[in-house]
Amino acid sequence: MAKVDATVIKETKYISGFVIILSVLMQAVFLILNKWDYTVLLGNLFSDFFAVGNFYLMGLFVQKALGKEQDEAKKIIKASQQLRTLGMFVAIAVGVLVPCFNIISVVAPVFFPRIAISFRPLFKDKNSKDVIDK
C-alpha cells in the first residue's frame, strides 16, 4: 500500500479537530434546548466518523490521481466521487432509518467539514503562503 501524503494527513487532522469542536457545540445546543438524549450522541459519533472518513478517502484518491496523466486523473476522481457519494448515501440512510440515531444529529455533521474549510484562512500556515509568493 502506498504511503499516505503528509498533506492529506495534515488536512484530515485539521478537519477532524474542527468536526470534534463543532460536534461538541452541537451537543451543547441540544443540551440547552433540553432535547439531548443518547440518540443525539450516537448519531453524532456515527456521522462524524463518515464525514471525516469521506474527506480522508477523497484525499487518498486525490493523492493517487496526482501521479497520473490528466485524463486518467479525471476518471479516477469521478469514480471516487461516485463511490464516496454512494457510501455516504448508505451511511446517512442507515442513520436516518435506525431509531437509535437522532436524524438531526446524523445529518448536520455531514456539513461540518465544509464549515471547517470556511474557517481555514484564519488558521492558514504563514510559511506555506510565503512559498506560494516566491
Partner: peptide, 29 residues
C-alpha cells in the same frame, strides 16, 4: 509546489463535494 497545490485542491474538492452532499441529504430526507 506539490504540497501547496494538493492542500488547496483538497479544500476545493471538499467544497465542490458539499453541493452533492446537500442534494444527497435532500434526497434521503
Amino acid at each position: 509546489s506539490k504540497g501547496d497545490v494538493t492542500s488547496t485542491m483538497l479544500m476545493g474538492c471538499a467544497i465542490a463535494e458539499t453541493t452533492g452532499l446537500y442534494a444527497l441529504v435532500v434526497a434521503i430526507l
